[in-house]
C-alpha cells in the first residue's frame, strides 16, 4: 500500500505544482507571438516524444552531485536530489508539463483576451477578473489539464526508474513495484496493483471526456 500512497502523493503534488507553473506559461503562449516561440513550444513538448529513459538520464545528471540539483541539495546538507522524493517530484513535473500546458493553452486560446479586457473595463481588477471570469470560463480546460497531468504522473515508469531508484516509501511508485513483482514472479500481487492503476486511469479519462461533452453543450469550450 506504501507504493500506492506514494504514487498518489507524487501525482497530487506534481499536479498542483504543474497547474501553478502552467497557468502563466499557457496564458503567455496562447496570447503572445514572439520570435522563437516555436522553440519554447518545442522544448515544452519534448517529453511527449523523448524516451523516458533519455529524459531520466539527463535528469539524473542534472539532479546528481555535480549538477544544479546537487548544488541545491547542498543547501540543506544533502549530496544529491536524485533518489529522493523531491527529485522524483521535479522529474514528474518536467515529464508531465506538456500534458498540462497544452490543454490550458488551447482553452485560453479559445477564451481569448477579450473577456479579461471586458472585465477590466467593467471595473474588475486583475485578481477579480481571473477569479470571476477566466477561471470559470477555463474550468473544462483545467479539469482536462489536471486529470491528464495526474494520470500521466500515475503511469510514469522510465523516468522514475532512472532517477528514483527503488526505495520503498521514498521513491518506489506503483509502476516500479509492479515491475519488481513481475520480475519476482509474484503475479498475484502484480494483478492487484495493475487492476487498481487500470481502474483509476479509466475513471479519470471518463471524467475528462464527460466534462468535455457537457462543456461543448453549454458552449463553454
Amino acid at each position: 500500500m506504501d507504493a500506492l500512497l506514494l504514487t498518489l502523493k507524487l501525482a497530487f503534488f506534481s499536479t498542483v505544482i504543474l497547474i501553478i507553473i502552467a497557468t502563466p506559461l499557457a496564458w503567455f503562449l496562447a496570447h503572445n507571438t514572439f520570435k522563437g516561440k516555436f522553440l519554447l513550444e518545442a522544448i515544452i513538448a519534448l517529453p511527449l516524444v523523448l524516451p523516458p529513459t533519455v529524459l531520466g538520464f539527463y535528469l539524473l545528471i542534472a539532479l546528481g552531485p555535480n549538477g544544479p540539483g546537487g548544488f541545491i541539495a547542498q543547501l540543506w546538507g544533502d549530496r544529491t536530489l536524485a533518489f529522493s522524493f523531491s527529485g522524483l517530484l521535479i522529474g514528474s513535473v518536467i515529464y508531465s508539463l506538456p500534458f498540462v500546458v497544452q490543454p490550458l493553452q488551447n482553452g485560453f486560446s479559445l477564451i481569448g483576451k477579450k473577456p479579461l479586457e471586458v472585465a477590466y473595463t467593467l471595473n474588475a481588477s486583475f485578481k477579480d477578473a481571473w477569479r470571476t471570469i477566466i477561471f470559470p470560463l477555463a474550468k473544462p480546460a483545467y479539469i482536462s489539464a489536471a486529470t491528464l497531468g495526474f494520470a500521466h504522473t500515475l503511469g510514469e515508469f522510465g523516468v522514475v526508474l532512472m532517477i528514483g531508484g527503488n526505495i520503498p516509501g521514498e521513491t518506489q511508485v506503483i509502476s516500479i513495484k509492479i515491475f519488481e513483482q513481475v520480475e519476482a514472479l509474484q503475479y498475484q500481487d502484480a494483478h492487484v496493483l495493475s487492476a487498481i492503476l487500470l481502474g483509476l486511469s479509466f475513471l479519470m479519462l471518463t471524467a475528462i471526456y464527460a466534462t468535455r461533452k457537457s462543456a461543448n453543450k453549454t458552449g463553454m469550450l
Binding site: 477579450k114 473577456p115 479586457e117 471586458v118 472585465a119 477590466y120 473595463t121 467593467l122 471595473n123 474588475a124 481588477s125 486583475f126 477579480d128 477578473a129 471570469i133 470560463l137
Partner: peptide, 16 residues
C-alpha cells in the same frame, strides 16, 4: 484600466 471611469461596448457584445 479598471480604475478609469470609462466603459466600452464592443462590436460583438462580448457578454460573459
Amino acid at each position: 484600466c479598471h480604475l478609469r471611469p470609462v466603459t466600452m461596448v464592443f462590436q460583438d457584445n462580448q457578454l460573459f
